[in-house]
Amino acid sequence: MKGSKSRNVLPGFGLSLGFTLFYLSIIVLIPLAAVFFKTAELSWAEFWSTVTNARVVASYRVSFLTAFFAGLVNAVFGLLIAWVLVRYKFPGKKIIDSLVDLPFALPTAVAGIALTAIYAPNGWVGSLLAPLGVKVAYSPIGITIALIFIGLPFVVRTVQPVLQDMEKETEEAAVMLGAYRLRTFWKVILPELMPALLTGFALAFARGIGEYGSVVFISGNMPLKTEITPLLIMTKLEQYDYAGATAIALVMLVVSFLMLLVINLLQWRMNRRTVSD
C-alpha cells in the first residue's frame, strides 16, 4: 500500500497508516487470527460436522432471522426517527436525540434483565399482552426486541447525517415539477438514502447476530427454538471444547467480515459515483 500520485503534499501518510496497521494488527488481527489457528486443530470433517450439527444450524436460523427482523424494524423506525429529528422542530427534541445513543452505553446484561422484566408475563408490558395470547419474553419475539434495542442507534446515526446533507435542490426541483410529496419521498429521497439505510441495517444486523448479553436473559434458550449461536459457543466452552467453540466462532467471524465488506464496497461505489459526477 503506497500513497499513489497526487495528494503527496500532505505529510504523515507513513506514520498514520503505519500506526493504524500496527495497532489494528495488535488489537484486532492477531487476536482474531487465534480463532483460525485454534480451529485448525480440527480436521476438516470434524469442523464440518461441528458447524453443521442440527442444533448449531437451528441456532444460525434463530440468530439470523431475529437479527434480520430486528434490522428491518430498525431500518423503518430508525429512518422515521432520523427523519423526525432532522426535519421537524418540536419540544424535547434534544433529549430524544440523546436517548438514541443510550443503548450503546447501557451494559447489555442490564438491557437484557430490564427488557425481560418488562416483557415477562408478569411485567409491565407482558401482562398486557399475556391475555391476548402474545408471548414476548422467552420467544423469538423477545430476542428480536432485545436486538432492536441494541441496533437502533446504528440505523439512526447512519441515516441522520445523510438526511441532513441531502441536497435540498433535488427535492425542491422534484416538488416544483409537480411530483407529489409521497412520490418525492419514494422517487427522490429514498433512493438517495438507500446506501446509508442499508449500511445502518447491515450494521444492526451484524451486531444482532453476535449479541449475547442481552439476549440470554430474554430468549429462554430452548434448543432448536430460541437458542442463539453465541450461546452455543458458550455451551461448548463450558464443556471444555475449545476447538468446537472456535469453529462456530470462525463461521460467525467470516459472515460478519463478508457482510461488512459488502457494505463498505457498496459505499465506496456510491462515493465514486458522486465523485465522478
Partner: peptide, 14 residues
C-alpha cells in the same frame, strides 16, 4: 468496523 460485528463472546475468547 469488524469489532462492531464480532460477537462479544468471541471478543473475549480470542
Amino acid at each position: 468496523d469488524l469489532p462492531f460485528a464480532v460477537s462479544p463472546v468471541i471478543s473475549g475468547l480470542i
